[in-house]
């Protein structure tokens, strides 16, 4: 499903060049459950953003589902993000002035799904993450764990083939972390490819494969079990 070949990414900050990725080659099979680990600044988020077509890369190649992801127009990128990829962020990234159900339904708005239909679906997904009772709450009225579950519901509502999560449990306590990980396992069981960035060993241990980054290189890549 994912094939990265010698992907490089350099950030230029004034005279400072930061080589965030120094030639990453990585294959991920459809239906896998992968964690990416590494110390701060090792390039985890950069990798995830490139995989999610939120960011570009300088050289190498990236193939997603057989499609070469290179020089896409903004419109094409938006289309892939909308149809194939679901995102979950450490800081939830919900829209503050929208209720939980509106946040969850938003990706379908950009697909042109009628309001009634998408709100119905959004309620189903909220129910699935156990938050049907909080549908009308604004993000500020939700706990961290609840907000992240809303974000997961939003990532899943378009039935993406790939779910990307950047430190999804980074802001949560261990109990709510466990709930979120359970959700990811369920999603993965349904066949969705899941890739999460984490620095917590016990989170990584719950996945099937872990990739260790160090200074923009893959230091270790092992299958667990």
């Amino acid at each position: 499903m994912i094939k990265l070949q010698d992907v490089r990414k350099t950030y230029q900050l004034g005279d400072n060049r930061v080589e965030a990725l120094k030639g990453i080659s990585l294959s991920i099979e459809s239906g896998d459950f992968v964690s990416v680990q590494g110390s701060s600044g090792s390039g985890k988020s950069t990798l995830l953003n490139i995989l999610g077509i939120l960011d570009s890369y300088d050289s190498g190649s990236y193939t997603l589902n057989g499609t070469a992801i290179r020089d896409l127009t903004q419109k094409q990128a938006a289309h892939y993000r909308n149809r194939f990829i679901g995102f979950v962020f450490q800081s939830f990234n919900l829209i503050n002035h929208k209720s939980a159900v509106e946040n969850v339904a938003l990706p379908l708005y950009y697909q042109g799904v009628p309001r009634r239909e998408r709100n119905q679906l959004a309620m189903d997904y909220l129910d699935r993450v156990g938050l049907a009772g909080r549908a009308e709450h604004k993000p500020a009225e939700l706990s961290g764990g609840q907000a992240q579950r809303v974000a997961v519901a939003r990532a899943l509502i378009t039935k993406p083939a790939l779910l990307l999560a950047d430190e999804p449990t980074g802001a949560l306590d261990s109990e709510t972390s466990a709930q979120i990980m359970q959700l990811f396992r369920d999603v993965n069981d349904e066949g969705v490819t899941v890739l999460i960035v984490t620095h917590e060993e016990d989170i990584a241990a719950q996945t099937r494969r872990t990739v260790q980054l160090r200074d923009g290189d893959i230091a270790r890549d092992e299958r667990l079990e």
Binding site: A78, N82, I95
Partner: peptide, 14 residues
């Protein structure tokens, strides 16, 4: 907010 909208599929035109 706009970044979030883009990340979930808003096109520039939208």
């Amino acid at each position: 907010e706009f970044a979030i909208r883009k990340s979930i599929g808003a096109t520039p035109a939208a």
